[in-house]
Computed example of a mutant assay.
Amino acid sequence: MANIKSAKKRILVNETKAARNKAIKSKVKTAVKKVETAIDQKDAETAKTALKAAIVEITKAGTKGVYHKNTVSRKISRLTKAVNGIA
């Protein structure tokens, strides 16, 4: 454990940020999983609805700095391509 006050604060702040990032990434993964499940079941309507929700979550994660903008673009692009493939 750190002895310096600022180092102790850093540890606490880092834990808070890590928890926030983990929650946001979890939301993204859940949204992506819903899209992939709909794709596996060949359900185009559900996939499109889930894709819209997933795009919102992924974009939010990018805006909040959890993901790099290129990662956001890549994830959205791959999901969209997969959904368009079943339609």
Rank of each mutant, 00 (worst) to 15 (best):
L51F: 10
L51G: 05
T37N: 13
K48H: 14
I55A: 15
K60H: 07
V72K: 09
V56S: 10
K81C: 02
A50L: 01
S77F: 13
R74P: 00
E45S: 10
V56T: 13
E36K: 15
K81I: 12
Q41Y: 03
V56N: 07
K42I: 05
K52N: 12
I76A: 08
I39D: 00
E45N: 13
I58T: 01
D40Y: 01
Q41G: 08
R74E: 10
A54N: 09
V56Y: 02
D40H: 11
K42R: 15
A61F: 09
I76S: 05
L51A: 04
A53S: 09
K34M: 09
K69R: 14
L51I: 03
E36Q: 15
A61S: 07
T37D: 09
K81N: 11
E57P: 01
Q41K: 15
K48Y: 13
K60G: 01
N70H: 11
K33D: 08
G62K: 02
D43P: 02
D40E: 12
A47L: 02
K81R: 13
K64D: 10
D40W: 04
A38Y: 00
A47Y: 06
Y67D: 01
S73H: 11
N70W: 13
A47E: 06
T49S: 13
G62D: 04
A44Q: 12
K34R: 07
L51S: 02
K64T: 02
K52G: 14
A38F: 02
T71K: 13
K34N: 10
V56H: 10
K34T: 03
E57R: 15
I39E: 02
A54I: 06
K34Q: 11
T59Q: 06
Q41R: 02
R78A: 11
A50E: 04
V35L: 03
T46R: 13
K69H: 14
T63I: 06
K48E: 15
E45M: 05
K42C: 04
V66G: 03
E36I: 05
E57T: 11
I58R: 00
H68S: 10
K33G: 04
T46Y: 05
E45Q: 12
K64V: 05
Q41N: 14
K60W: 00
H68N: 10
E57V: 12
S73I: 07
A47Q: 03
A50I: 02
A44H: 11
T59P: 00
V66S: 06
K75I: 14
D43K: 11
A54C: 09
V66H: 00
R78S: 12
T49N: 09
A47K: 05
T37W: 06
I58W: 06
T71V: 08
E36D: 11
V56R: 08
D40P: 01
D40T: 10
R78Q: 13
S73C: 04
K52S: 15
A50V: 00
K64F: 01
E57D: 13
S73M: 07
S73K: 12
D40C: 07
K52D: 15
I76N: 11
